[in-house]
Design a binder for these strands. Sequence first.
DNA 1: TTTTTCCATATTGGATCCAATCTTGAGAAC
DNA 2: GTTCTCAAGATTGGATCCAATATGGAAAAA
Lengths: 231, 231
Amino acid sequence: MTVQGPADRASATPRRSGDQVAALTAELRAQIISGELRPGEPLRQELLADRFATSRMPIREALRVLESEGLVVLVPHKGAAVAPLDPAELKEVYEMRVAAETLALRRTIPELSNAQIDRAERIQDRAEAAGMAGFGALNRLFHTTLYAPCGRPRLLAHIAGLIDVADRYLTFTAGALDYRDRSHREHRALLAACRRRDEATAVDLLGRHIAEAGETLLRYLQESPRTGRGD
Amino acid sequence: MTVQGPADRASATPRRSGDQVAALTAELRAQIISGELRPGEPLRQELLADRFATSRMPIREALRVLESEGLVVLVPHKGAAVAPLDPAELKEVYEMRVAAETLALRRTIPELSNAQIDRAERIQDRAEAAGMAGFGALNRLFHTTLYAPCGRPRLLAHIAGLIDVADRYLTFTAGALDYRDRSHREHRALLAACRRRDEATAVDLLGRHIAEAGETLLRYLQESPRTGRGD
DNA sequence: TTTTTCCATATTGGATCCAATCTTGAGAAC
DNA sequence: GTTCTCAAGATTGGATCCAATATGGAAAAA
């Protein structure tokens, strides 16, 4: 009857936490989106386990989740790799963003308070002040903040996943000054329409904004085709 | 407590390893959609491992994937359960289906051959002949066959996931004769518009068809609120 | 009787171990 | 010199083992 009190193993490993997988997934996701893990780069389980000071097991589960998000490619008995960039996927994802985000905006506007619009506008202020660094993150935050009041968790999660994928392409392009400038102007116009509660105009502006961003990114990608295929 | 010694699997199971997880995920997904595993039902790892004659490990990965599809709820240290049915989710998913499927149809029509329309029509013939049994599966097949030519794998996968979730609710309702009848009529009208390559009408019909199906299901669900919360 | 405490048990989370498969490169055959 | 074969190493897939946490119920206290 050895009573093993919790005080026993307070020695070395702080590894008492519950959900390792969630943290790992988030970290890997961030590194893939930022380009720190480059498109096509192989993801060896043992290596990642070492890097995150854990075992292969939670890594494996995290890779499964990231695969279902389209950020990782898994080939049986061959291993995992960061999903390559693919112009066709870029087009597709931006089409889907238009569909999903215009739906979200339509459902948001009836619920939209001035306070919420102010919040989005302050984020836009920061985005314009920030320059290239953090453009992706603040751009994303602007969109998601705007749609938050619609109260549709599943739709919002879907949009977040689409933006994750889209931001991988944005990394190659956010340096383009003219692209950022136009994006900022379009955000301001969108906010103005929201203040007037002019749903038709707002939805139209948002749809064009996203679609044109996608086309611009596509042009950049095809000019410098670093698809990261690794071959 | 099945003691599976190493000697066991040398003889009986040719357990040639491949991707066990994919098969398990598919099987569990099917059982959840069909209602064989009921909403709210707890999913014990050991039990599932026994049932599928495998170990807990691939089960765990499969549950992760199903969670990201919204079919399973995972609570740390508590376990997995079939996701409960939720009228709010039903509404949301059908809104998303309208957005995603009308997009798919718009992109399909320019690519649509008569052979492809014939194929969808034959599926519709079978659906009308089949009656209640298999309504869900054939209904789904009709939709996915129609959109297949659009050549957008990511969009199609997204739609498939939405239909997975939607079909869970359909299980409670497919018995309603009037619902099926109207669905069949609307499918025929949609096919006619596709044959004329009348995109505007086809998209409009499809949007209404999905939206009204969602509303009907919502009414049924609220009349007999078997949300399967399990409490 | 009711409530609280605490321990035994069930179950999940993570680590390690073994088997299956893929990859690579040295050596043989042509 | 080139190509084929096959064996050793690398890497993933699956099974088992141990640790951590949650759950349920008996015993103790009120």
